[in-house]
Design a binder for these strands. Sequence first.
DNA 1: GTCTATAGGTTGATAGAC
DNA 2: GTCTATCAACCTATAGAC
Lengths: 206, 206
Amino acid sequence: MSETQPRRRGRPPGDGREAILEATGDLLRERGISRLTTREVAARAGVSEASVFYHYGDRAKLLQAAFDRGLAPLLAIAAQGEVAGADRHQVLERVGRGIERFLMEAMPILTAAQSDAELRDELAAMMSERDLGPHRGVSRVGDYLAAEQAAGRVRGDVDPHAVAASFVGTCVMRAFQATMHLPTRRLPPLSAVIDALDTMLEPPPG
Amino acid sequence: MSETQPRRRGRPPGDGREAILEATGDLLRERGISRLTTREVAARAGVSEASVFYHYGDRAKLLQAAFDRGLAPLLAIAAQGEVAGADRHQVLERVGRGIERFLMEAMPILTAAQSDAELRDELAAMMSERDLGPHRGVSRVGDYLAAEQAAGRVRGDVDPHAVAASFVGTCVMRAFQATMHLPTRRLPPLSAVIDALDTMLEPPPG
DNA sequence: GTCTATAGGTTGATAGAC
DNA sequence: GTCTATCAACCTATAGAC
């Protein structure tokens, strides 16, 4: 993590550990967890298979490490502060893109875990414990809309968190579709959804 | 499929083919595709492993058959007619529950396919060819809202299909969360989202 | 830390009797 | 159609040299 020496270009010689983790993540996304063998990982990382086990003990621990890294964006977005900004439309645009981007990184991990009940349950336990999940995004956006509502800039007769759920849900749907390698072009663009929600959130004149 | 004889109770003797397919689906949902071995399938179906290969040729074709069956609800919802009804709130409630129910059935199949690039790409090709996906639900709900808009029962300054996307997205998010065995209780209930959208869709008085 | 070589176990698939 | 028995391939993991 911390280095006093100036960084050199390329991978430091002998840093097989990092190369292995990177190869694992790449294979996980490209070929899927079923095709993820320690053989393939070693080959792509340019090391021997024994090195994989030397560094990570067994396949399960290697997967765990790859999952931890792959879910980092999910932790990052959860750790972010409050949502704020002058223009509501711009705020939703920025937050929505962020959620989609984060989900696109994490989604392959989430779906990969579904291939094995043990992995799935471990992941579910971890996420429950840390209170992770889409509801975090919903809370963040919902709190923002609630503040806007309190300031009189959002109509008072709707539940801000319910609207936030529909917004985050749109992002989840789009990310899920993209992860499955299905075209998202048949879905309304995110900006259109933001336009509609933004318009409907406007307080009635008078 | 068609039988002139009166049906007997229970599984007909010697219908191993059906038992195998059922066992495959069960294992797929319960333990995940990585743990789905022909051995386990045979054991749960109460037949020998050779029977599995006799009926389905190889593991890939067995999976294909299980996928076809598991995605039937997706085909069913796509084949449904137009959405209609007197009360908009009730219509959204009914359609939303339907989408959630269908997705809860199909989601394990969709995520299972992500474990193998070959399966994933085959599924994506099949869905593209048949024009399947969340956008079908979005279209159906969007067309309904557009009709309501034309009838003056939905405000005219929003894109009905964009609102429909946010609605279907909510259902996708909830189904995805449930499939991952994460609690959906931290998300706003679907009825709250319907309430909010319904309220916001109301045309301004006057 | 990294390698080669290999043990040990699991899996998909086939052969042949009934 | 269903079974038992078996095989070849593959995968995880370890041993031991460098």
